[in-house]
Amino acid sequence: MTGIRGFYLAVLLCAPAGLLQADDAATLRASHLALAAQLAHNQFQRPLFLESSQTDNLLQGDIYAEIAQPFSQVGPALQGGEQWCDLLILHLNVKACRAASVAGNAMLQVHVGRKFDQPLVDAYPFAFSYRVEMDEPDYLRVGLRALQGPLGTSDYRILLEVLALDEQRSFLHLSYAYTYGVAASLAMQGYLATSGRDKVGFSIIGQTDAGQPLYQGDMRGVVERNTMRYYLAVDAYLGALALPVGARLDKRLNDWHSAVERYPRQLHELERAAYLSMKHAEVQRQQALAQGAAVQ
């Protein structure tokens, strides 16, 4: 049970209200200016900055990145529950996503599971509210929130902000975290001591005796890996918008896998063929769910 509990904590999607702060266009623009040096020079070889934080019961990861697409294209593409389901399913641990309306509120029903094909009954069902919090000519903020998660965790959120920089570029901020208690912390420590013992994050916290980078580990390493996986899903989703609708899925899946394989120490899990086979089956199941079919 320890491995399963640790696994669920390792793939949590969202973040607590206490840490995530709703900004605005001016604040995000100031962040872009303040991070100019980090965006220009980093270990990712792209204009991207990642950070994480941990308190007694909160974990949070944040990514800030420039993307080579205009806000006029990016903003509309990141609005709508169906669009978010198309984005989230790229992550290898998302088994299905269904947009729905509950009592007049937009919801995303997201099943999170393991890194292989499995019935939905074996995955954890998250119920996320979905809300466009701000939609301005040069700025978008979308918030997702789930009140409950596995092992007594609660109050999950995703916050995604996008700002227009110029006619060709946008600036994106993705933030996610989760609240955890003693039971969840113990389960995560069990995961990190067994199947997750060789996993690391992205922040460089020192050097080894051989002069190699020493990467963030432990629970902050977990949140950094998942922050990156979801950012790469956003990036792959947006990168296929110029293609005909029928060609977008294959490009997104291949681009997501190629992107995670740029960081094998942190993110390698499945070979491309296995990932593509699993995801094509899961997308078919997701499409059946959207049409109201009963699936497993």
Results as ranks from 00 to 15, higher is better:
T2A: 12
R5K: 10
L9R: 03
A10I: 03
A17P: 10
A22W: 11
T27G: 06
T27H: 07
A30F: 13
S31W: 09
A37Q: 12
N42R: 09
N42W: 11
R46K: 12
R46V: 04
P47G: 01
T55E: 06
E66C: 09
A68E: 04
Q73D: 05
V74A: 03
G75I: 00
G75W: 00
P76N: 05
Q79V: 13
G80Y: 12
G80P: 05
L90W: 11
V94S: 05
A100D: 01
G104W: 09
N105G: 02
N105V: 14
L108P: 05
V110W: 06
F116Y: 14
D117F: 15
Q118F: 04
V121G: 07
D122A: 10
Y124S: 02
A127F: 15
S129Y: 06
R131I: 01
R131P: 04
E136A: 08
A146Y: 07
L151R: 03
T153F: 14
D155H: 13
Y156D: 01
L159V: 13
A164V: 05
E167F: 10
R169F: 07
L172Q: 11
S185L: 11
L192D: 01
A193V: 06
A193R: 15
T194E: 13
S195I: 05
T208E: 08
P213L: 03
Y215E: 06
Q216N: 04
Q216T: 08
G217V: 06
G217K: 09
M219W: 01
R225S: 00
R229F: 10
L232K: 00
Y237E: 06
L238I: 09
G239D: 13
V245Y: 13
R248H: 03
L253V: 08
L253F: 07
D255I: 00
S258T: 09
S258K: 13
L270F: 14
A273D: 15
A273Q: 12
A273G: 05
H280P: 00
H280L: 05
Q284F: 10
Q284T: 05
Q291Y: 06
A293R: 04
A294N: 08
A294K: 14
V295K: 01
